[in-house]
Amino acid sequence: MKRRYARHRRNRAAIFQGSDRIAEFLTRKWARILDYRWIKELWAFHDNRIAGRFACEYHNDSGTWFRAYSNENWEFRSDGLMQRRIASMNEHPICEGDRAFRWASPVHPYDH
């Protein structure tokens, strides 16, 4: 089953148009983000809108670890595709010893 993405995606200064270009970008992005550990907190949802907080840790192929935080608002079209995403994110390198998300599975434990 082919994934469906909205028609536009912006990543910092780059704008991707078309589902195929977006899928290619995301495939390249996820190939560089290794041992990804992610937590999320749902703040609110109503009709076709969701607001949440996210935190993640991962390393790149050079072994540098990063932690990132994000607050995001999503709005979806009637066909289920995202039509708007507003996000405030930061990302910074961390020492391996400063990692906080150390569970084995990519899915975080329920009680974390």
Rank of each mutant, 00 (worst) to 15 (best):
S105F: 01
R67D: 03
N60K: 13
G97H: 07
E91W: 00
I22P: 02
E96H: 11
A13T: 13
G18P: 06
A14L: 12
R10N: 04
W103E: 11
G18A: 07
Y36E: 14
P106V: 12
R37G: 03
R7P: 01
L42F: 02
R77T: 01
A104I: 01
Y69H: 15
E57D: 08
H92E: 14
S62D: 08
R49K: 15
Q17N: 06
P93Q: 13
F25D: 11
R7L: 01
Y58M: 07
I50W: 11
R53Y: 06
R12K: 11
Y5K: 01
N60H: 11
A51V: 15
R102N: 15
V107A: 15
R4D: 00
D35S: 14
G63N: 11
R53E: 07
I22S: 06
N60T: 11
I22G: 05
N90C: 09
G97Q: 09
D79C: 04
A68C: 02
E91V: 01
I33A: 13
L42W: 03
N60Q: 09
Q17M: 04
R32M: 06
W43V: 13
N71R: 07
E72C: 08
R3E: 02
W103T: 11
R32T: 11
H8W: 07
I39M: 09
A13G: 03
R4N: 02
A6R: 10
R84G: 03
I33P: 00
W65M: 03
A14Y: 08
F45N: 09
A87M: 09
K2Q: 07
Y36V: 10
R67S: 09
A104G: 08
P93H: 06
C56V: 02
Y58W: 15
L81Q: 08
K29A: 10
F25R: 08
S88L: 15
I15K: 04
R32A: 13
E41Y: 00
V107Q: 14
E57M: 08
F76K: 04
M89K: 13
R10C: 06
Y110V: 15
R102F: 00
L42H: 06
A23P: 01
F45K: 13
L42V: 14
R37H: 15
H108P: 13
I22E: 02
R9Y: 15
R3T: 03
I15G: 02
E41G: 02
D61P: 05
S78K: 10
E72A: 14
P109I: 14
N48I: 00
R7T: 04
S62I: 02
I50Q: 03
P106Q: 10
W65F: 15
S78E: 13
S19Y: 02
H8Q: 09
I39Q: 12
K29W: 07
W30F: 13
Y36C: 09
F54S: 10
R28E: 12
